[in-house]
Structure formats: C-alpha cells, structure tokens
C-alpha cells in the first residue's frame, strides 16, 4: 500500500486547511486506491451529512444525499473529469449544497399532504423556541433565519469549512462572508436570548 505523508484531521472533523495532504489523498483516490477512498470518506462524509442534516432535518434524506454526493465524487475523480486542484473541499461541498438546494426545491413543489407530513416531522420554529431543549431551540432559531444566513452557518459550523474555502465555493469575497456570518450570529443570538442581545447593543 502506498503511504503518503500528510496531516489528516481526526475522522469526521474539520481539518486545518492542509490542502497538499488532501490533494495527495485525492490523487490516490482518483487512481482507484480503495484505502484512499476509505480515508476520504472518513474525513468528509460526516461533515457532508451534518450539512445536509442541519438544512433538511431528516436523517434518512441526509444520508441519501451524502451517498449521492460521494457517488458523484467517485465518478468524477475516477473518470479524470475532476479539474478543481487545490480546491477539493470547496468542490465537494458545492456538490453537497447543490443537492440540498435541489431537494428543498423539489419538496417545496410537492402536494399538500407531503408538506403536512414534513410539518409533523419538523415542528415549527416558534414551537421549538418556546418548548424545546437547547438543541431544538437552536434548530428552530436557525430555521427562522433567511436562506443565505442558514447557508453560511451550515457551511462554517456543520461542514466545518474555512472561510477561504467557503469564499472559493460561493465565489464571493472573504470579507463579505465574514460580515454575513457575523450578522447571522447576531440574529441568532437575538432570537435565542432577546434580553442579552438588547443589553449588548446598549
């Protein structure tokens, strides 16, 4: 087995942006090295899952989306169509985010009975804010935010991406994303604890 010296983060945890190590791993995976695939999936699959899970609230759908993302990644890498050198992470999470957006679009067009079913599975944001535990309240508050705020929080915290990688993925300046992230956190704080947000502002 080919051994590549690189710094690999703990399984499922965001890395420290060691793009050279990741690129070497991706190159091995592209050569159909199964151990490289095991490592790549170990590194990123739970982060992709967390991203999907936070936006869709359904663990089964999140796993399906994660699978479809890695099927695409495998096909692209092994067929030689992968052209995003040094930007693997941005490329991977762009695929994931597009799948999540597609799913949201599709389900929003479904007839009423499916929407009702979804409502049963995912209580309203206000319900969570009033009655749930800390996690439920946080999820409810995130759901109350605009889509762009939800996306930046999901990419930064659920996917564990660096702002530089998010900027590459969304093709926006890092400064813009930092400001958007800061605003989203402020809104979230205000939703979860209006009193402390008012004190802080004064």
């Amino acid at each position: 087995m080919l051994v590549v010296s690189r710094q690999i983060p703990e399984r499922g945890q965001p890395g420290d942006g060691d793009s050279e190590g990741i690129d070497a791993l991706v190159a091995q995976a592209a050569a159909n090295d199964e151990s490289a695939w095991v490592e790549l999936i170990g590194l990123y699959s739970r982060r992709v899952y967390a991203l999907s899970r936070s936006r869709l609230h359904d663990p089964h759908v999140a796993e399906e989306i994660t699978q479809s993302v890695f099927v695409t990644v495998f096909q692209q890498l092994t067929s030689g169509r992968y052209q995003a050198e040094n930007r693997f992470e941005a490329w991977l999470f762009r695929i994931a985010m597009n799948r999540v957006r597609d799913h949201i679009r599709r389900t929003s067009r479904l007839p009423t009975h499916n929407s009702e079913k979804a409502n049963l599975e995912t209580p309203s944001a206000s319900g969570w804010l009033q009655n749930g535990d800390e996690t439920d309240r946080l999820r409810g508050a995130i759901d109350s935010l605009p889509d762009s705020d939800q996306e930046i929080l999901a990419l930064r915290h659920q996917a564990g991406m660096e702002f530089k990688a998010i900027a590459a993925m969304l093709d926006e300046p890092v400064g813009t994303l930092l400001a958007r992230h800061h605003r989203a956190l402020g809104k979230l704080r205000k939703l979860l604890d209006p009193a402390s947000a008012t004190e802080s502002a004064s």
């Binding site: 695939w37 095991v38 699959s45 739970r46 899952y49 936070s54 796993e63 946080l138």
Partner: peptide
C-alpha cells in the same frame, strides 16, 4: 449541534457510503 449531527450516523455509515 454540529458535533451532535456528525455523531448521529451509526458506525456503519462510512461503509454504506463507500
């Protein structure tokens, strides 16, 4: 919350993805 989501999938998750 992110930790909780990442830990939510069971041990066979990576094998199924692979």
């Amino acid at each position: 919350l992110a930790e909780r989501h990442r830990a939510e999938a069971d041990d066979g998750f990576e094998s199924r993805i692979l």
